[in-house]
Design a protein around this nucleic acid. Structure first.
Length: 218
DNA sequence: GCCCAGGGGGCTC
DNA sequence: GAGCCCCATGGG
């Protein structure tokens, strides 16, 4: 199993090349992006991040202090903007109240303590928490998402409705805990999902995994 | 006009 | 624990 997973990783890496995730200028910007990208394409997030930078409030203090309606306006491109404005404020207030706005004090925690604390903040679920842990805190947790489920279901590893935790356990139980590899693997899965393993009409003939995919047997 | 994109929470049973 | 609904932009 380990060899199979590493083989798939190698295939994707050779095809797509390094993905350079997470595109952000700071650890805090990763967190903001992780919340804003919930159920929306990254393009929409970039617009919002630029707005926050222009406004000069892409800081913990800045978001904690800005008017909630104003914040919602600035991130309007990211869908569910009212809820996301609340989420950003909740996270920043948590950092302000417990860590004096120093995100690294939070990130210094042991990985699973950090995960539990992130999950306790309303608006941060498993995928968002794990993205923060891997891409901002740089600890070796495997991020799972809808693409992961779809691709590995079609490859024959998961059921169509496989739950998050069992998918994460599967990867973490069969791969060495390597931050750089986990970083690339998740990003490569997203690239594969976007370009080939799409939900409606998968482009199987061009897919770098088609010859080992159960879904493509015609 | 439709569908879906780098989800999460809340509610019911 | 599963099954539903809500949130509410932008690109193809």
């Amino acid at each position: 199993m380990k060899k199979e997973l590493l083989h798939i990783y190698d295939r994707l890496y050779r095809y797509f090349g390094p993905q350079h995730w997470w595109p952000a200028e700071s650890e805090f910007e990763v967190v903001v992006g992780a919340i804003l990208t919930q159920s929306v394409s990254w393009k929409n997030v970039e617009t919002a991040i630029q707005n926050l930078k222009k406004e000069g409030i892409l800081t913990i203090q800045g978001i904690a202090d800005v008017d909630k309606g104003r914040l919602a306006e600035l991130i309007k491109s990211t869908l569910y903007y009212n809820q996301k404005a609340e989420k950003l404020k909740r996270f920043c207030n948590h950092l302000k109240e417990n860590y004096g706005c120093n995100i690294f004090k939070l990130f210094n925690k042991e990985m699973y303590d950090l995960r539990a604390e992130l999950l306790s903040i309303k608006g941060i679920g498993k995928e968002t928490a794990d993205s923060i842990i891997l891409y901002a805190a740089k600890k070796p947790i495997f991020v799972v998402d809808a693409y992961t489920r779809r691709i590995f279901h079609r490859l024959g590893y998961f059921r169509e409705d496989e739950d998050y935790q069992s998918m994460q356990d599967f990867f973490m139980g069969n791969l060495p805990p390597d931050v750089d590899m986990f970083n690339e693997y998740h990003a490569l899965i997203v690239a594969e999902g976007k370009d080939f393993c799409t939900s409606r009409k998968p482009k199987c003939n061009a897919c770098p995994l088609s010859d080992i995919c159960k879904y493509w047997r015609k």
